[in-house]
Amino acid sequence: MGKVGRVAFVLAVGLSGALIQPAAGQAAGLPGTVAYVRGGDVYVGAGAAEKRLTTGGGHSRPRWSPDGRRLAFLRQGRLWTMSADGGAQTRLSTRPAAGPSWSPDGRWIAFASLSCTGGPGVYRIPSTGNAKPEVLFPRDCRTEELPEEAEAAAATGSLNDRLRHDDAVAWSPDGTRLAFRGGDCESTYDACLTIGTVDNGAEKTVAAYGGGSLQNRGYAVVPSWRADGRKLSWTAYQEGETPADSKPVHLVEYDVATGTKRTVGSALDRELAYIDADRAVITSRNRGGSWLAVLALTNGTRTLLRAGSQPSVQPTTR
């Protein structure tokens, strides 16, 4: 991206907003504990206190259960669960997995894995494990045999390279829909994000890049629903026809009813996890690395928390 385009985008999303370092013990207004990743291991923290739940690296995408008592996470690309204190770590499936998400009733965990079409698909498995994964998307794969458990290539390279193929999924608060990267829209576009209806397998494209009549390149990944189901956010990147049309990694918030979109936060913000309608925990950049921050969605101000990424906010109703 050209310098002019990058500067224009930074000004548009408010990168100049003040970053506030919390004092020791300050909880930054968080209603619960945040799970996150640092150095390939899962931590939980609130205020100045934190606890390391895993060791040895290779862990990613922790996600709280609806009752706040367990976490789903990935270990070496496989789906696991554990209790909130790091105990009872249990592998649910041998199938390579990406980005888990719990159903609102806690009975199921959805994850992405290779589908019968050869592209990314979405599966669900009982949160207790000991069962064969069930295909949700693509719909046409529901009646097909599960594909072999092909090992996915580890994501390497720049932040863009790693995010571009992140297959994290997000289950809607009412349990009827799942948001995920890819879908039927990949037959038209180079990259896309989909909301799929669980019952009938219908799909709706909510973000698309390249192909068709679109003269751009990019991606939309790591979706996250607001608790009322009215908003969906994701991490995006775009290369346009001109520098002014290009955007570095940024956050998009989508109104499910109207289809309108807006950029929230600043350039290089990613991985939004809602606290409530007005605040979210995000991964931001600070001191040359990834830091968690509380972002005010109304005015873009933020409070830094600690080094880490891939946040998930513990539900307050348990």
Rank of each mutant, 00 (worst) to 15 (best):
S187E: 11
P223V: 06
L114P: 07
N299C: 03
G157W: 06
L159D: 15
T242F: 04
S101A: 01
Y43P: 02
I195T: 13
V7N: 12
L19I: 12
F180Q: 10
N299R: 09
D190H: 10
V34W: 13
G77M: 10
R63T: 15
Q314C: 03
W171P: 02
G288D: 05
L30T: 04
S158M: 07
A244F: 09
L92Y: 00
W225E: 15
D161F: 11
A98P: 01
N299L: 02
V206R: 03
G40C: 02
G211L: 06
V7T: 15
R287L: 15
R142S: 08
G121M: 06
S158A: 03
R38I: 03
T235Q: 01
G218S: 04
G229D: 14
A112S: 13
H165S: 15
G25C: 02
Q215E: 14
E203G: 05
V221N: 03
Q21I: 14
L79Q: 05
A27D: 08
A227K: 07
A273V: 04
G201E: 10
E186H: 08
I275N: 06
A12V: 05
P126F: 00
V122P: 08
H250R: 01
G201A: 03
G86N: 02
G47L: 03
V4G: 14
D278E: 11
S113F: 12
A27H: 08
E145H: 07
V169H: 02
Y189Q: 06
D269V: 05
A208G: 03
